[in-house]
Design a protein around this nucleic acid. Structure first.
Lengths: 179, 179
DNA sequence: ACCTGAACACCGTTCAAGT
DNA sequence: ACCTGAACACCGTTCAAGT
């Protein structure tokens, strides 16, 4: 029982693993990142990862939670700017993580853990976008399909890089319609 | 030189491998399908696959070409029906292959072969959709963003299953705008 | 030209053993 | 409770060898 092992060691170690995984997953990609390389960066052994996380996919979910919290930090201060700009801001922040967007969709069809995270993520983002639309005075029966189209547009923009002017054109079209 | 080896053996064998891979990739998923299982279904050895295809990803591209040709067969006869219904028809036909849609996007970021196929696919579908929009009398400067939004909507519908009535609502909104 | 057997390097995961 | 060494089963891929 060494006295230098403080009680927050657990969260620290786990946080280091998540941080290492977050960098590698976004840069190298989830599939191409081996747990050995995650362990190396985090300064632990492969098996240690399994003490903290049930599987590689469970580690991915922890990474996603971490990045989401990070990405959402600051979205509140933007409550005053127009909806289109707010969405554009979100797209800009998520752009470096684009690789993970496709990874999540690919894994959601086979991995229950990832599927659960994906469903929860959509529930949250749908709610945020739907609220924004209602406050813009969109008639209630159009809120649901427009929310869906808006989310599809955001996902599409993340998966297919485009200059910002064209991103804006697509989002405006999705929210305001032609003209 | 056995006399029962006909000259079309090569295409036959390769077609059998593609057919086996097409079934397994769509049902089990690309990542979860091992080349051993493909070989077993096709009645060959794993190494034989490498005689016909450069890699597992090259085999995927062959499968995609095969399925695309199959899916596009019959789209011409629909030239008279409204654009929304035509897109809905395409979505319906691709729905069982939804797993592959996400796989292609996931691999496109790391595999040049798959990225090339993905780019070509988008070029073709963009053209088809843009032509349809022009014939519907959409003003030229709106054709490009509307095509993009339309493709994003289709991909979104493939990645997130929805009842047909809601699929139609999203597509109508993308093409006709609110009201 | 076409196909195989046997190996290679690597992967996610497990488990008995240590502290 | 936490971590490790060593192994497991499996994977995509390669290559020398056969016909």
């Amino acid at each position: 029982m060494p006295r230098n092992r403080r009680p927050r060691d657990r969260e620290e170690k786990s946080a280091e693993i998540v941080a290492a995984a977050a960098t590698l997953f976004t840069d190298v990609g989830f599939e191409k990142t081996s747990l050995v390389s995650v362990a190396k960066v985090a300064g632990v052994t492969t098996n240690t990862i399994y003490w903290y996380f049930e599987s590689k996919e469970a580690l991915l979910v922890a990474v996603l939670d971490h990045l989401l919290a990070e990405a959402l930090h600051g979205v509140d201060e933007q409550a005053e700017t127009p909806l289109v700009d707010r969405l554009l801001w979100v797209v800009g922040r998520l752009d470096e993580r684009a690789k993970l967007v496709t990874t999540v969709h690919a894994l959601a069809t086979t991995s229950p853990v990832v599927e659960a995270w994906h469903d929860g993520f959509h529930a949250v983002t749908n709610e945020i976008l739907a609220d924004g639309l209602r406050q813009s005075g969109i008639p209630e029966e159009q809120v649901v399909p427009m929310t869906r189209l808006g989310v599809f547009a955001i996902e599409g923009l993340l998966m297919h890089p485009l200059p910002e002017a064209e991103q804006r054109a697509v989002l405006r079209l999705a929210l305001d319609g032609p003209r």
